[in-house]
């Protein structure tokens, strides 16, 4: 293709995507009731794109007589506002608390739609939003364009205290974990048996690892597995009634950890590590090729450093 033809195509694609977004910035959010008082909005198992507006994440809410608890606010101000309206179509109770499970952009950039004093998160999540939120926000503008109109970083002011929390008769357990990021909040509703696992659990979609600590993540999965939940809401991918997504996430992390360690120990260059064949059992996970590539970029240097530290002493 000639240079001008290439630029034309690029321009056309960009224009088309902007047009689509501008014409219809509707996330078409439809809350699904998964248990008593409990609703989930399931995102697409895709990467961020101009087409999906960043609606790749699961958000949810619990309606109680004392008000509504919202779990994650979505990827943009528009998403947050549409989530708020979707809640208002179901209940006239006010939103009394919005929990951000962790500091990744698709979980907190809808915060502006809610009253600032309702926003809460683990202290390290609040810290992460303050320190990295700005660059996440900029990056989201690049990835989903006009869907981000008016979106700014609004970090929760209220730190969450892990432990039991009662809200309108719901006996909730706020569980402070880590591994997907430095602070991952899981919310377990003992009254309904619903576990909101945040991004500690992915289902039929390859996990993302920009802030991952795999051993810590594995330990967190073990903990979630012992809770005795009836319904599992992963951070990404469909809701289930069993621990399948926990096993799936654990299996992927176990493989990833082993494959990258082995690659580094075998002396592979990063380009060779990128070329490793993914086992058949993982190839059916959505966006697995792209997530593997990103994970190599994020995690391989640390394995490599370990493998290289064995010998090679500076000369005297």
């Amino acid at each position: 293709m000639s240079r001008s033809a290439r630029s034309l195509v690029a321009l056309f694609t960009l224009g088309w995507a902007l047009l689509l977004a501008a014409a219809d910035m509707n996330y078409d959010l439809r809350p699904v009731r998964i248990a008593t008082d409990t609703w989930v909005l399931t995102g697409l198992s895709e990467d961020f794109s101009f087409k999906n507006g960043g609606n790749i994440v699961n958000t949810g809410f619990i309606v109680t007589p004392a008000g509504v608890l919202v779990i994650d606010s979505g990827p943009s101000r528009a998403y947050g506002e549409q989530l708020r309206r979707a809640i208002a179509r179901i209940t006239d109770k006010p939103v009394v608390m919005v929990l951000n499970t962790h500091h990744h952009p698709d979980h907190f950039l809808g915060n502006q739609a809610f009253a600032p004093d309702t926003l809460a998160a683990l202290p390290d999540t609040i810290h992460g939003i303050h320190s990295e939120g700005g660059s996440f926000n900029e990056n989201m503008y690049r990835l989903i364009g006009d869907w981000m109109a008016g979106t700014e970083v609004l970090a929760p002011a209220k730190p969450v205290t892990p432990g039991p929390m009662e809200l309108g008769g719901h006996k909730l357990e706020l569980i402070a974990l880590k591994g997907h990021t430095g602070a991952d909040l899981a919310i377990f509703d003992r009254s309904t048996g619903v576990l909101f696992a945040g991004d500690l659990v992915f289902h039929d979609r390859a996990p993302t690892t920009p802030h991952a600590n795999i051993p810590a993540w594995q330990a967190s999965l073990d903990r979630l597995d012992t809770l005795g939940f009836q319904v599992l809401v992963p951070g990404h991918g469909p809701v289930t009634l069993d621990a399948g997504p926990i096993r799936q996430t654990r299996a992927w992390l176990t493989w990833l950890d082993k494959a990258l360690r082995q690659a580094a120990e075998d002396g592979l260059d990063m380009t060779e590590a990128l070329a490793i064949d993914l086992p058949a059992e993982f190839r059916r996970l959505a966006v697995v090729e792209a997530e593997y590539r990103r994970s190599v970029g994020q995690l391989f240097p640390a394995y490599e450093l370990k493998a290289l530290s064995r010998s090679g002493r500076p000369a005297q």
Binding site: D269, T271, L274, A290, R293, R294, G297, Q298, P301
Partner: peptide, 12 residues
């Protein structure tokens, strides 16, 4: 090299 490099500081 990867066709897409998310980290422009460290492209293998």
């Amino acid at each position: 090299a990867p066709l897409t490099a998310e980290n422009p500081m460290n492209v293998p």
